[in-house]
Design a protein around this nucleic acid. Structure first.
Length: 265
DNA sequence: ATGGCGGATCTTATCCGA
C-alpha cells in the first residue's frame, strides 16, 4: 500500500504531471492539497479512468482545496472545518488497505503569511490557531487507533528540513513557535514521521523549492513542508518512504512542491 | 536575491502562496 501526498498547486493545470507520478510511482492512494478548484471542477472522470475510482474532494474556488483519490475503497468520510474560516483544508476517510484498514487525514495547514507575529499578522495568527485546533482534536481521548496524517503542514520541523537552520529561524515555516506547535501535535499521540524513519535526521531533505530561484536545483534552497505521519503501530508496517525530488523538474510548469510517498505493508 | 515566480479570477490588476 503506497500513499502519496502532493501539494499540486492547481490540479486542473497539472493533471499530466499527476499521470506521470502515477506511472512512475504507482501509488494506491493519492492525497492532494491546493487543488484550487471547486468540487465539481475536479478531474474525477479522468482519474477514475486512470485507476482511482474512489474519490473524496473538498474543493474551493481559487484557493486551498484538498482531495483523496484511491484504488481501494474509502468510507466513513469526515471533513472538518478549522478556525471557522469556511475554507477547504481537511478531508479524511477510512482506507481499506490490504494489510488492515486505517483512517487517513489529508491536511493543508495555512501558510502563515510573511511576518511571524500573531499580533501584527492575522495569517500567522490563523496558522497558530489551526495548529492549536489540530493538537486539541488529536489529543481527544476518543481518538481511534490506526491513523495516518498527511499533507502540506507548511512547517519544516528539523534543522535538516531546511537549507539553512540559522537563516530561517525568523522565516515563517521554521520559527520556533511553529516547530514547537507541530512537535506538540506530534507528541500528543507519538506520531511517527515516516520519511525520517528512512532518511537520517543528519541528511538534508526537502519537498518544496521556491519558484523564484533562478535555478532551484543548483541553489537547492529547499524546505521539507510536506509530511506523512502515522500512529506507532502503523509505523511498524512502514517499509519505505521517499521524496520524489525529480518531480520539481518535470516539464517547465511543475508544482513548487514534490510528492512524498510512504509504503505501508 | 529564498520570494526578479506562478497560480486563479474580481484578468492587462489583484490576491494568494512560502
Amino acid at each position: 500500500m503506497r500513499i502519496a501526498t502532493w501539494n499540486i498547486n492547481s490540479v486542473r493545470l497539472r493533471l499530466p504531471l499527476v499521470r506521470r507520478l502515477i506511472k512512475a510511482e504507482e501509488p494506491d492512494v493519492l492525497c492532494f492539497q491546493e487543488i484550487k478548484c471547486q468540487t465539481d471542477q475536479f478531474p474525477s472522470r479522468e482519474l477514475e479512468k486512470d485507476g482511482y475510482p474512489h474519490q473524496i474532494v473538498n474543493g474551493q474556488k481559487s484557493y486551498n482545496g484538498v482531495a483523496i483519490v484511491s484504488k481501494v475503497p474509502l468510507h466513513e468520510v469526515d471533513i472538518r472545518e478549522f478556525c471557522a474560516m469556511g475554507d477547504a483544508r481537511h478531508v479524511s476517510a477510512i482506507v481499506e488497505a490490504p494489510g488492515g484498514a486505517f483512517r487517513l487525514h489529508n491536511f493543508y495547514v495555512p501558510s502563515g503569511g510573511d511576518e511571524p507575529d500573531p499580533g501584527a499578522n492575522p495569517k500567522f495568527r490563523h496558522k497558530l490557531d489551526f495548529l492549536g485546533e489540530m493538537r486539541d482534536w488529536f489529543g481527544d481521548p476518543a481518538f481511534e487507533a490506526g491513523q495516518v496524517i498527511v499533507g502540506d503542514f507548511n512547517i519544516a520541523p528539523h534543522e535538516n528540513d531546511v537549507w539553512s537552520h540559522t537563516q530561517l529561524l525568523k522565516v515563517v515555516s521554521h520559527t520556533p513557535v511553529e516547530t514547537d506547535a507541530l512537535e506538540a501535535i506530534r507528541a500528543a499521540r507519538d506520531w511517527a514521521d515516516l520519511l525520517r524513519l528512512h532518511v537520517p535526521v543528519t541528511e538534508k531533505v526537502y519537498s518544496w523549492w521556491s519558484y523564484r530561484a533562478r535555478d532551484w536545483s543548483q541553489s537547492d534552497r529547499g524546505r521539507r513542508l510536506d509530511h506523512i505521519w502515522s500512529t506507532p503501530e502503523l509505523a511498524s508496517r512502514c517499509t519505505g518512504a521517499t521524496i520524489v525530488r525529480a518531480a520539481r523538474g518535470w516539464t517547465d510548469k511543475p508544482s513548487d512542491h514534490v510528492p512524498v510517498i510512504a509504503t505501508l505493508g
